[in-house]
Simulated scan of single mutants.
Amino acid sequence: MSSITIFDPAMCCSTGVCGPSVDPELTRIASALHKLEAEGVEVKRYNLANDPAEFVQNEQVKELLKTEGADALPFVFFNGHLQTTGDYPSNQELATYFSIDPQQLETKKPKLKIDLKSI
């Protein structure tokens, strides 16, 4: 089974998609990860604020934090191999790595339009 593991910087919740001002990049990656899960990819995500033990137990992550510091987060692993640090992979990169159509990872706007004048 294919997998992606992300070690996120400290955020207010597990995905960072909460609060009054949400970073669109966090929304994009959360959506893409949800869609990857639907395609059978195992997704693990750890937040430095909520899951510090995961950062300490993983020797490679612990060493990266020691040498690069927390500013280098997120650390992204594909199938156990470090792929990126400091940024989340693009939808195109995810699609290429997991051999899926990039359009499957795009967030589509709803086509339903509501006419408030008719209410």
Rank of each mutant, 00 (worst) to 15 (best):
T27R: 08
V56A: 14
S21I: 05
Q83L: 05
F75D: 00
F7M: 02
E68V: 05
D71G: 02
R45E: 03
L82K: 09
E39N: 13
P24F: 03
S31Y: 10
E68D: 07
K44H: 14
D51L: 11
C13P: 10
A72P: 00
L48S: 11
E25C: 02
D23Q: 10
G40K: 11
R45N: 10
F78V: 06
E37R: 15
V22H: 05
A49V: 11
E54H: 15
P52I: 12
P20F: 01
D8F: 01
D8W: 03
P9T: 05
A10W: 07
L73G: 03
A53Q: 15
L65C: 07
C13H: 05
N47P: 04
V17G: 04
A38H: 12
K44G: 12
V22D: 02
K35H: 11
S14W: 05
V56K: 15
P52F: 10
S21W: 03
F75E: 00
S21L: 07
F55S: 13
P74I: 04
N58L: 04
V43A: 06
V76S: 00
N79P: 01
I29V: 10
V17P: 02
R28W: 01
T27E: 06
P20G: 06
L48K: 14
F77L: 02
A32R: 11
L33Q: 14
G80W: 09
P20D: 05
L36R: 13
Q57S: 14
G16M: 09
L64Y: 06
C18P: 00
L48T: 10
L26A: 10
N47G: 07
H81Y: 06
P9R: 10
V61T: 10
A70K: 13
V41A: 06
